[in-house]
Amino acid sequence: MDSLVVLVLCLSCLLLLSLWRQSSGRGKLPPGPTPLPVIGNILQIGIKDISKSLTNLSKVYGPVFTLYFGLKPIVVLHGYEAVKEALIDLGEEFSGRGIFPLAERANRGFGIVFSNGKKWKEIRRFSLMTLRNFGMGKRSIEDRVQEEARCLVEELRKTKASPCDPTFILGCAPCNVICSIIFHKRFDYKDQQFLNLMEKLNENIKILSSPWIQICNNFSPIIDYFPGTHNKLLKNVAFMKSYILEKVKEHQESMDMNNPQDFIDCFLMKMEKEKHNQPSEFTIESLENTAVDLFGAGTETTSTTLRYALLLLLKHPEVTAKVQEEIERVIGRNRSPCMQDRSHMPYTDAVVHEVQRYIDLLPTSLPHAVTCDIKFRNYLIPKGTTILISLTSVLHDNKEFPNPEMFDPHHFLDEGGNFKKSKYFMPFSAGKRICVGEALAGMELFLFLTSILQNFNLKSLVDPKNLDTTPVVNGFASVPPFYQLCFIPV
């Protein structure tokens, strides 16, 4: 009986604490739906499609509103004006990374994606500088992407125009580009180590996009005490870190300090320079996690976009025909596509942009946080508050993009057929937390897609009208449904 009384008292205290925290903070924060004790607004949000729920709530509470995930307040920004004001106009104040408990377990605050403060700034600055020195957006990395595009075309030829699921092959190409940047090595598509790495990356994007992960991140005790797919994700990350550590040891034994070959060499050189400046942010643990982040951000996002792009091109054969006509006119058949071609191919450029806009790969991006107490639109948001960005509300804005739910390359073309930029184009987020590999991803999408369409016609196994382009999961990332196609050599 005594234990029951204690339990009831504990629960009562928890409920009172929950109510007090919510009521004391709500006077400062933007308005929002009334949260339930302990669980907050979790029942009012469709976990399978958070973005749709945010759109519905914005119609009631406006472009800036507050939700509670458990006891934790989260300020939501919906629509271009609110997102721009926060991420661009007040970029420094909104540059923090929001709480992501599962990532905390995986990387302990290291790396480039989930770190904060001085650690994040130094690692991000170093990573950007190193990638630029190796030619991100310049010639040397373009050579690597072109080489991988040629290998991709050869792998597709091996399908002999038979029906195939493109998931694996389209994942190999961007993964190999990242391998060449980090390890100075590309792998054969049949290499077992490479296959294991690909498998872990593919599993992780599916797990991260599941409703279960949303629950884990908002009720963090689940991570330590409950079984579930989150444990598989943590094991996959541990596998990748151990693999990278092996490569780091190989580099330490063979590195030429006067001739760095890749990202690992550059990081080890930085560690050597910083060894007298303790404590340094440049450690082996930081290198492991930064490399894992580059793999995660640079492989599955690009391969998922490529997979979605081919599905949309199957669905819209008239678009595919126009792209192939432009390829034939500008590039021809006797040389590989290059980035200089893009400025002469406005329709193809528009298609690449429209694919990214339409699929809305990361509907709410990753959570941000404010780095200080900030007054925002007459609300006071306390330091450390998590900020949720609705990228969907920007990419699918119906004023900027008429009929935003329709796939239409003319969203990025003017009346004369010239490519038209849009400030609403934010597939990689915006501001200080914009994806480090934005330029690389854009290069890969253009070169891989043009190389495929230069060499193959795409054949659907069903009537294009019957192809479903609805994402199968739409949590962290929008993942396309399973499909097969035939690559018919031109």
Rank of each mutant, 00 (worst) to 15 (best):
S3G: 14
L4K: 07
V6N: 13
L7G: 12
L9S: 05
L9H: 09
L17G: 11
S18D: 10
L19H: 13
S23V: 13
S24K: 14
R26I: 11
G27P: 10
G27T: 12
K28L: 12
K28F: 13
P31G: 08
P33G: 02
P33R: 02
I39M: 10
N41L: 04
Q44A: 10
I45V: 10
G46L: 06
G46W: 07
I47Y: 15
K48L: 07
D49V: 03
S51R: 13
K52E: 11
S53T: 12
T55Y: 13
T55L: 13
S58G: 10
K59V: 09
Y61V: 02
F65P: 00
F65K: 02
L67R: 02
F69S: 06
G70S: 03
L71P: 15
K72F: 04
L77P: 01
H78A: 12
E81F: 05
K84Y: 08
E85Y: 08
E85D: 10
A86S: 09
A86R: 02
F94A: 07
F94M: 11
R97I: 04
I99W: 15
F100S: 15
P101C: 12
P101F: 07
P101R: 10
A103P: 15
A103V: 10
E104D: 14
R105A: 11
G109Y: 10
G111Q: 02
G111S: 11
I112Y: 07
S115K: 05
N116A: 06
K119M: 10
W120H: 13
W120S: 13
K121F: 06
K121E: 09
E122P: 14
E122V: 09
I123G: 15
R124C: 03
R125S: 07
S127E: 04
L128M: 11
L128Y: 09
M129Q: 14
M129P: 08
M129W: 12
M129E: 12
L131P: 05
R132S: 06
R132V: 05
N133C: 09
N133K: 09
F134A: 12
M136A: 10
M136Y: 10
K138D: 13
K138F: 11
S140A: 11
I141N: 03
R144T: 11
R144Y: 08
E147I: 07
E148M: 00
E148V: 01
R150H: 10
R150Y: 07
C151G: 05
C151T: 06
L152F: 02
R157V: 05
K158R: 11
K158L: 08
K158T: 05
K158H: 08
K158S: 09
T159N: 04
S162P: 01
P163R: 04
P166Y: 00
T167H: 11
F168S: 07
F168I: 05
F168N: 06
F168Q: 10
A173M: 01
V177I: 08
I178C: 01
I178D: 00
I178R: 01
I182K: 00
F183H: 03
F183D: 02
H184L: 06
D188Y: 03
Y189Q: 01
D191M: 01
D191K: 02
Q192W: 05
Q192K: 14
Q193R: 09
F194G: 01
K200V: 11
K200F: 05
N202I: 05
E203I: 03
E203A: 06
N204I: 14
N204H: 06
K206N: 11
I207G: 06
I207V: 07
L208W: 12
W212N: 05
I213C: 11
I213R: 13
I213K: 13
I213L: 15
Q214W: 13
Q214D: 09
Q214I: 11
N218T: 15
F219E: 04
F219S: 08
S220N: 13
P221Y: 11
P221S: 12
D224M: 10
D224N: 15
Y225L: 14
Y225T: 08
F226D: 03
T229C: 14
T229H: 13
T229I: 15
V237F: 09
I244V: 14
E246V: 05
V248H: 05
Q252R: 14
E253D: 12
S254H: 12
M255E: 08
M255L: 15
N258L: 09
N259C: 10
P260I: 04
P260G: 08
Q261V: 09
D262M: 02
D262E: 03
F263G: 03
F263C: 10
I264G: 02
C266G: 08
C266P: 03
L268M: 06
M269S: 12
E272F: 08
H276E: 12
P279L: 13
T283D: 08
E285G: 05
S286W: 09
S286V: 11
L287V: 03
L287T: 02
E288R: 06
E288L: 15
N289R: 11
N289L: 11
N289V: 15
D293V: 05
F295N: 00
A297R: 00
E300Q: 12
E300C: 10
E300A: 15
T301Q: 00
T302P: 04
T302M: 08
S303E: 02
S303C: 05
T305W: 05
T305Q: 03
T305E: 03
L306Y: 01
Y308Q: 03
Y308S: 04
L313I: 02
K315L: 04
P317G: 08
V319S: 06
E326Y: 00
E326D: 07
V330S: 09
R335F: 04
S336V: 13
P337W: 01
C338L: 08
C338I: 09
Q340I: 10
Q340P: 08
R342G: 04
R342C: 09
S343M: 12
P346Q: 07
T348N: 03
A350V: 02
V352G: 03
E354P: 02
V355G: 01
Q356H: 08
Y358C: 06
I359G: 09
D360S: 13
L362E: 03
P363G: 06
T364C: 11
T364H: 12
L366K: 04
A369V: 14
A369C: 14
V370L: 15
T371V: 08
T371P: 10
T371G: 10
I374Y: 09
I374H: 07
F376M: 11
R377F: 04
R377T: 04
R377G: 11
R377K: 12
N378P: 03
N378K: 10
K383E: 09
G384R: 04
T385V: 04
I387M: 09
S390A: 10
L391F: 08
L391S: 08
L391V: 09
L395G: 07
D397N: 12
D397H: 09
K399T: 12
K399V: 10
E400F: 07
F401D: 02
P402Q: 11
P402M: 11
F407V: 01
F407S: 00
D408M: 03
D408H: 03
H411I: 01
F412S: 01
F412Q: 02
L413T: 03
D414S: 06
E415L: 07
N418V: 07
F419V: 08
K421Y: 08
K421G: 11
K421E: 08
F425D: 09
F425V: 05
F425Y: 11
P427C: 08
S429L: 05
S429M: 08
A430C: 10
K432R: 12
K432C: 04
R433G: 00
I434M: 15
C435P: 00
C435E: 00
C435Q: 00
L440E: 00
L440S: 01
M443P: 02
L445W: 01
L445Y: 04
T450C: 11
S451D: 03
I452S: 00
I452A: 00
Q454P: 01
Q454R: 04
N457P: 00
L458H: 00
K459G: 08
K459C: 08
L461N: 12
L461Q: 10
V462R: 06
D463S: 09
D463P: 11
P464I: 07
P464C: 05
K465M: 10
N466A: 14
L467F: 03
T469Q: 05
T470C: 08
P471N: 04
V473T: 13
F476N: 05
F476E: 04
A477P: 05
V479H: 14
P480G: 03
P480R: 02
F482D: 14
Q484D: 04
L485D: 00
C486T: 06
F487I: 00
P489Y: 01
